[in-house]
Computed example of a mutant assay.
Amino acid sequence: MDINQLPAECLSSILAFTSPKDACRSAVASPAFRSAADSDALWITFLPSDYRQIISQASSSSTSSCLNSLSKKALYFRLSDHLLFIGSGNSSFVLEKESGKKCYMIGARDLDIIWGNSPQYWTWKSIPTSRFREVAELQVVWWLEIKGKIEARSLSPKTKYAAYFVFKLVEDRYSRRGFQIRPVSLEVHFEGAEVEEDGRKRVILDPPEGSLVVCEERSDGWMEVEMGEIFNELGDDGTIIFHLKQIDNFISKGGLIVEGIEIRPKYD
């Protein structure tokens, strides 16, 4: 039987077992495959099951209306090629293009930063390289603690995720005191779960020259460090907590600029 004789619905069902990349490649095989590869019936299988709810959270109602008017294929690529700012615009969402997995970034304004609203300790400013309107710049503290959280149901199921702390340090090395010799503690866990000592990472954010560098520079010019990883089984495990702290010494700290915490799939 000539496969091109199959109804477009059957071809779409077949292509749904592939990937977005393979579906696009199949479009050049024949007109029948091209029709199936462009169909809403196919691309709705690649979109997250809660894509309507995600769109409804857009920080701009005009953005939400625009997205709802797109075909499902166009919507998939719009959500994978452009950030969608959600809520009050202090967090963002994007699809991983290859897999359709959900990725989030929680901006500094949506994080719980101890003394974050006290100008003598933290100031809020706009930086051209940031995706968000404001980032938090540390002036001076002795007790540093930053927390974030996300509901497991917001992430893709059966997926291993890693969380990354995204930051900069001010150029003046003296002003970024406290991060050269003392590590920060990083952890990721489900709310209510006990974290063993070996489940915490300890990382120096501003290591001396010649030492092992754990932080990496991103393509957007910011730095990131992995906080930890977690496996999201079915999304019914409650709330995932991200925690950064340096509270075990009396050394003053300053010069840290916080953009947010990014959560994205991790592949071994």
Rank of each mutant, 00 (worst) to 15 (best):
181 I>C: 15
158 K>R: 13
198 D>Q: 13
129 T>K: 05
84 L>C: 01
69 S>M: 04
46 F>L: 04
206 D>N: 08
231 F>S: 04
233 E>R: 15
58 A>H: 04
91 S>R: 04
69 S>P: 11
189 H>L: 03
32 A>H: 05
10 C>R: 12
123 T>F: 12
166 V>D: 13
230 I>T: 02
125 K>Q: 12
173 R>E: 12
93 F>K: 03
50 D>T: 01
231 F>P: 06
7 P>L: 07
60 S>Q: 15
161 Y>L: 01
153 R>P: 08
226 E>N: 06
177 R>M: 05
94 V>F: 12
156 S>E: 03
124 W>Y: 02
223 M>F: 07
170 V>M: 05
57 Q>Y: 12
13 S>Y: 07
130 S>N: 00
217 E>G: 13
40 D>F: 00
71 S>V: 10
108 A>V: 01
202 R>V: 09
102 K>W: 10
65 S>K: 14
60 S>P: 14
8 A>E: 09
80 S>M: 10
209 E>H: 09
154 S>H: 06
152 A>M: 00
65 S>N: 08
18 T>F: 09
194 E>M: 05
212 L>V: 09
99 S>Q: 02
128 P>S: 10
143 W>F: 05
166 V>F: 07
64 S>D: 06
152 A>F: 09
58 A>E: 06
4 N>G: 07
222 W>V: 14
44 I>W: 13
241 I>G: 04
